[in-house]
Amino acid sequence: MDYRSNLPERVEVLGAPIDPWTMEETVEATDRIVSGGLFAHLIGVNADKLLQMRDDPWMDACVRRCEVVNADGASMVMAAERLGVAVPERVAGVDLMRELCALAERKGRPVYLLGAKAEVVTKAAEALMRDFPALRIAGYRDGYFGEDEFDRVVEQVADAGPAIVFVGITSPKKERLIERFRELGAKGAFMGVGGTFDVVSGCIPRAPMWMQRANLEWLFRMAQEPRRLVKRYVVGNARFFRILREAERAQRR
């Protein structure tokens, strides 16, 4: 099955591959993947992920191998526009997760939540069951395990039989875990969602809509977790915009 049929072809933005799809097209592609019994690693690229790709050859290769690569950051959509690359919209991870839960509810497909602290992932599962009453949650567990336990976790998740797995673990551990699912022959859609379980569970609030629309969600997140995120956003964003300016100068030449 060609899950990319009739969807826009992949482009590159600042050297990162991007599927220039809307939210609706991303959900459509994921539906085709699950229906066809395929494996897919869904990943979102933002400024931080772009920098990880430039610093880590393994991460660069991983992102290029992923079956679905969204522009998860407003910075990537803005960069695409400034460089004349057509990327229709930002597909935010937290929003995509909810859309995929809605898809799973409609189609009767089970989902699995993997990651965060035990109390956080439990609250996230409870919140999703309230928001999507017919959603089948095949299981959930925390993300506190080492890479030496990956195979055991893969087996545990596989035994639950989910069609979609949301992995709420930090990078690069979550990417390495999802790729281990690939290596061991797993089927289904596996989406890295970072700290989204904290938002879904209500443990950390999401930015108000006006900040989301103004592309300031990063600022709200940094205010919530300054010790963890100041370096990522302040230093990382400054480096990202230097890369963008260099790309613009090279394009003019």
Rank of each mutant, 00 (worst) to 15 (best):
L38D: 04
E25M: 14
D131Q: 13
E147A: 08
S75C: 00
L244Y: 15
L135Y: 01
A138C: 11
D55K: 15
V153K: 01
R245G: 01
V63C: 08
K174F: 08
F150A: 02
R10Y: 04
G168M: 00
E24T: 06
A16M: 07
M129H: 01
I164M: 05
S75I: 00
D31S: 12
Y144D: 08
R106V: 00
P162G: 02
L229A: 06
E183G: 02
F197H: 11
E246N: 15
F197D: 02
E105Q: 11
L135G: 04
S75P: 07
C66G: 01
I43W: 00
W210P: 13
V34G: 13
S5M: 03
G202Y: 04
H41L: 09
F166M: 04
S5W: 07
D159P: 09
S5P: 00
R253Q: 14
K49N: 03
Y3Q: 05
S201N: 13
M97A: 12
G146E: 00
L219W: 08
M76P: 03
N6F: 07
G143T: 01
G192I: 02
V234L: 13
K187L: 03
A47C: 12
N46I: 13
F132N: 08
G202E: 06
R253S: 11
D159M: 10
R253V: 10
C66Q: 06
A80N: 10
R176W: 07
Q224R: 15
W21Q: 03
H41A: 01
R141M: 05
V121N: 01
R136I: 14
V165H: 08
G73K: 05
G161W: 00
D72K: 10
V234R: 14
A40S: 13
T26E: 07
L100A: 00
M59G: 03
Y3D: 02
S201Y: 08
D72E: 14
W210F: 10
A186S: 14
E175I: 05
A160I: 01
W21N: 04
Q224V: 13
L113H: 02
A79P: 11
T170E: 06
G236K: 11
I243L: 10
V199Q: 15
E28L: 13
R176T: 08
M59C: 06
T122M: 01
A92W: 09
E183N: 03
A74N: 12
I204M: 15
L184A: 05
V193K: 02
D31I: 06
I18S: 08
F166I: 00
R242H: 06
G93Y: 00
A29S: 10
E9M: 15
A158C: 10
D142I: 03
K49Y: 02
V63I: 04
R253L: 12
G73C: 11
V63M: 07
P226N: 03
A74R: 14
A124K: 01
V154Y: 07
